[in-house]
Design a protein around this nucleic acid. Structure first.
Length: 263
DNA sequence: AGTACCACCTGACGGC
DNA sequence: TGCCGTCAGGTGGTAC
């Protein structure tokens, strides 16, 4: 479930292990993920270049290539990851793109389910615009702008809409709504001002804490819903069983006792 | 305009 | 043991 926190963890992993190192070899092992480019184009643009900087917007990660070769962009779909491989490490399953650096270190983009995308971009801002991505949930969205996103659909659908807020998916949307004590099916434009503000603060805190935990559910604060998602999960606040309901087309976990608020 | 549903893909899991 | 159906969930498409 790579959403904003996972993408941020991957971005940092790439930066820590790949910045200012020459890409010696490029291995594309699954063309299906390539977004409008051929394997040979990927190789030509990456091979021999260095990674100069990294960026993230919502769930997308960008890596700037030296010599004006633009940006490598990565999207992780549902099952994408970035792995660091050292010399002699066993190659993980489902590696789709592998970049090798001098000294035997490699970065591997793995993805079991092939829903992600690997592409190139000349400019991050242009890509964000063309993709109609909304402001990044953590870096670009202030409270007044957040308020203006509240329209006629459910708050869950609103938070998951990448053209409204970039970065939240099913899991962190549920977490945010749990932390705010709000019923996920509530209509966004009926929320009281104070509720919208509480929601905004909950969203930021959830994303920040999740990043601090390295996006690892086991390392998250005790009052997080996330590790309890799944059959038989209990509310970390009241201990009662979580309820599931399909809201905005997604399986939604919530506590019927602690998330009764609808406005 | 908003919601519902499907497809894409693979692995896990439950039922028989 | 193993086969089958179902589910997960990001995104993008279509239908209502």
């Amino acid at each position: 479930m790579p959403e904003l926190p996972d993408a941020e963890v991957f971005r940092r992993r790439i930066a820590r292990n790949g910045l200012h190192r020459r890409i010696e070899t490029v291995r594309v092992s699954d063309e299906r993920l390539l977004d409008g480019i051929s394997p040979s184009t990927v190789r030509r643009r990456l091979k021999g270049r260095e990674m100069e900087s990294t960026r993230r917007h919502g769930k997308h990660v960008f890596v700037e290539l030296s010599e004006g070769q633009g940006w490598l962009r990565l999207h992780f779909g549902m099952t994408g990851t970035i792995r660091v491989l050292k010399e002699g490490d066993e190659r993980p399953d489902h590696v789709k793109l592998q970049l090798d650096f001098p000294g035997g270190r490699s970065l591997a983009y793995t993805n079991t389910r092939t829903f992600g995308r690997i592409g190139l971009a000349d400019d991050v801002g242009t890509f964000v615009e063309e993709k109609h991505l909304g402001p990044d949930a953590l870096r670009e969205l202030d409270l007044s702008r957040f308020r203006r996103l509240m329209g006629g659909k459910s708050i869950k659908a609103t938070l998951m809409d990448q053209s409204a807020v970039a970065g939240l998916g099913n899991v962190y949307t549920d977490e945010t709504l749990f932390q705010a004590g709000l019923y996920p099916g509530a209509r966004a434009d009926r929320l009281r001002d104070g509720t919208v503000e509480a929601l905004y603060r909950a969203m930021r805190r959830v994303l920040e804490k999740a990043i601090e935990a390295g996006a690892d559910p086991e390392a998250m604060p005790d009052d997080f819903l996330l590790p309890n998602r799944g059959a038989g999960g209990a509310c970390p606040r009241c201990g009662r069983g979580l309820r599931t309901e399909k809201i905005a087309g997604r399986m939604t976990y919530f506590c019927p006792h602690d998330q009764r608020r609808k406005q």
